[in-house]
Nucleic acid binder design. Structure first.
Lengths: 167, 167
DNA sequence: ATAAACTTTCATTTTTTTTTGAAAGTTTAA
DNA sequence: TTAAACTTTCAAAAAAAAATGAAAGTTTAT
């Protein structure tokens, strides 16, 4: 396989994977493109490589910057803007999970807490509802915390060992 | 908040959360409904509660069963079929992550391996591509394994301790 | 202050995904 | 074997999400 073909395949695959996880295809593709580029890329070049419109490029770059995983870069003597991706994968994972947590998990947790707090009358049905949503709340809360904690302990030798062990 | 209101809110929220993670809304809603029902529910009742068509209900129930997180149940003397959800949350998490791994991560890994295996000519550009996709392969592979391993070790006292510690 | 070089916005169009519903299929009881 | 009671399938319709592109906005150099 040639470089160009490989690059294209990678970008397409990353785009498809993104879609399946609720991230829009173009956004994932732009990200993929920037991930494997060794230097910052202009909007023009992104449009050209992915065959997308200016508006599309602009909006998805904005979204990627909002996620904190793509940065603007300015080159001396150049008017236009260039873009690079966060290339440290640990850092990338942390940022993505923090954002998803903030945007999606935390609001869901709030609702779970609310609905699990109704006072169930004696009916088995209502009891089961409260029980199940309470369990779900605890579970989601815990899952939401795990990555945070792993990150937190990352500099810690013991944790390093544990993480290694679990792998 | 009343039970009915709470239940509805939960179902809606779970549906919205699903959408954001690439799971179709109705599928997530049916799942939510079954999760908090203390007894198996007929297709008719699902249609009624979620205000969806027969076809929609049928297809999404099939999908949930393919994921292994919803089961058919037969009641003595009843012709129609009833449905229940896997209610053990650890089991649920394992099944979902296994399925997503099989359907989405594994194929992506295959591509990553492929594209990272091109032999880069001397150009910095191609070198960077190979380097980055290789790192990505390793990273995704590792992430893909973590949950498996945690599950595997679940009965193991040491792992229990570690898991507890990491929380 | 002007204009060139660029980016952003957003109403409209296009594409993709989901849903519908009626026909076909299946199972069970008599 | 027939028919009633139910489920599945899938082409067509509807809804939702994403993309376009032109106008508006910004920045910079002169």
């Amino acid at each position: 396989m040639q470089y160009k073909e490989a690059k294209n395949k990678f970008v397409q695959t990353w785009g498809a994977l993104g879609s399946q996880w609720g991230i829009n295809k173009t956004m994932a593709q732009i990200h993929a493109l920037l991930m494997v580029s060794n230097e910052a890329v202009s909007m023009e070049d992104i449009m050209e490589e992915l065959q997308i419109s200016r508006g599309n490029a602009s909006m998805n770059l904005r979204a990627l910057m909002d996620w904190g995983i793509v940065y603007k870069e300015y080159k001396a003597g150049e008017r236009r803007e260039f873009f690079t991706a966060e290339k440290d994968l640990d850092e990338l994972a942390v940022k993505i999970s923090k954002e998803r947590s903030k945007r999606e998990i935390k609001p869901a947790l709030k609702v779970l807490k609310e609905v699990s707090s109704i006072d169930a009358n004696a009916s088995a049905e209502e009891k089961h509802f409260v029980e199940q949503t309470t369990k779900l709340y605890d579970f989601v809360l815990q899952a939401d915390n795990v990555l945070d904690k792993i990150t937190e302990y990352k500099d810690n030798w013991l944790a390093q060992l544990l993480v290694k062990f679990l792998k």
